[in-house]
């Protein structure tokens, strides 16, 4: 039997600073008829949970295990991880969700997917959107907006290897390997209608986020940066191994939020809002210096410590400047 979602294939939604996490959620949000940037870019937070970071491209910190709420705190977006209950029939839940016309986000190991650049070469945890299953012809239909974008059929055996991979440690990718895939999937729901984005609605979002930044976010960054530098000075490469996937989530969210504010500023004739958006984008750009310095410094964390400290200081300044700019705009 064949199970396919109805209507057009999933939209390939992509921005250069996002990961497969935002890309897959963007596809699902778009299918609900909402604008992915307006939903995924509406909120902006900083949250670091020590000891929680996993070596996966799609790692994102969330306090209550609701990945959807973490990515889109101002919308009724919710997401929970699930795994097949019956090892003898791993497709049972997937069939049911596709039959309900629902897309499924699946974790995979790039090593086993023919369309990924890492195919047969590098183990790395990744997310794709599953929109069809044809057990007669042995095909799984997947959508992946990350370059090189792909949308189409994959042999079911290849998908099963990828979906069930142990994703073993791979020296070619220290940041996204060594994390069992375990046939994980995400159940994503947009429970509430997405309201029209008006200046008043956006002001409400910004007010909440600025308050959280001032209450816990900036202090959270200071704690994160302090621990990062301390661990580097002590020669703990694990700190840099965690920095890359952790920072990706924070960088992606800042880039989407900044882009949304700039877009709204232009559309509403509000240059101050556009400027605030640019200030938030500067946070995203400063994350590049920190993450890439960490990535190249992995072999000698102690030697990288001074540059890590400098980039963390720059990034802290960008956060403070952006939060201050948003605060002034709200007065």
């Amino acid at each position: 039997m064949t199970y396919m979602t109805k209507g057009p294939e999933p939209e390939l939604w992509y921005r250069d600073l996002i990961s497969c996490l935002q890309a897959t959620f963007g596809s699902l949000v778009a299918r609900e008829g909402a604008d992915p940037l307006a939903v995924l870019g509406a909120g902006w937070r900083f949250l670091h949970l020590p000891g929680d970071v996993r070596s996966e491209e799609f790692y994102y910190p969330c306090e209550d295990d609701d990945l959807g709420a973490a990515l889109a705190p101002h919308h009724g977006l919710h997401a929970q991880w699930w795994q097949p209950e019956d090892e003898d029939d791993p497709w049972r839940e997937m069939r049911a969700k596709l039959a309900e016309d629902r897309l499924v986000i699946a974790a995979v190991d790039n090593f086993h997917l023919p369309f990924r650049p890492a195919y047969g070469d590098v183990h790395a945890a990744h997310l794709v959107v599953v929109y069809g299953l044809d057990e007669v012809r042995g095909l799984v239909y997947v959508s992946d907006a990350m370059p090189p974008a792909f949308r189409g059929a994959v042999p079911i055996e290849a998908f099963l290897r990828s979906w069930g991979s142990a994703n073993p440690t791979d020296v070619q990718d220290a940041f996204f390997s060594d994390s069992r895939i375990g046939r994980r999937c995400l159940d994503v729901r947009l429970d509430a209608p997405v309201p029209d984005l008006t200046p008043e609605v956006l002001a409400g979002y910004l007010s909440t986020d600025v308050e959280i930044f001032n209450r816990t976010g900036l202090a959270g960054f200071d704690a994160f940066a302090g621990e990062l530098v301390d661990r580097c000075e002590a020669g703990d490469a694990g700190a840099l191994r965690e920095l890359y996937p952790f920072g990706w989530g924070m960088q992606a969210q800042a880039s989407l939020h900044g882009e949304l504010l700039r877009r709204c500023g232009r559309e509403w004739g509000d240059p101050a809002l556009a400027g605030a958006g640019r200030a938030v984008e500067s946070v995203a750009h400063a994350w590049t210096g920190l993450r890439i310095t960490g990535a190249h410094g992995l072999g000698d964390a102690q030697a990288a410590a001074a540059d890590i400290a400098r980039h963390a200081t720059v990034l802290r300044g960008k956060y403070a400047e952006a939060v201050d700019t948003l605060s002034r705009g709200l007065r």
Partner: peptide, 8 residues
Amino acid sequence: AAERRCED
């Protein structure tokens, strides 16, 4: 060129 979008 940059390894990810960057400004300094």
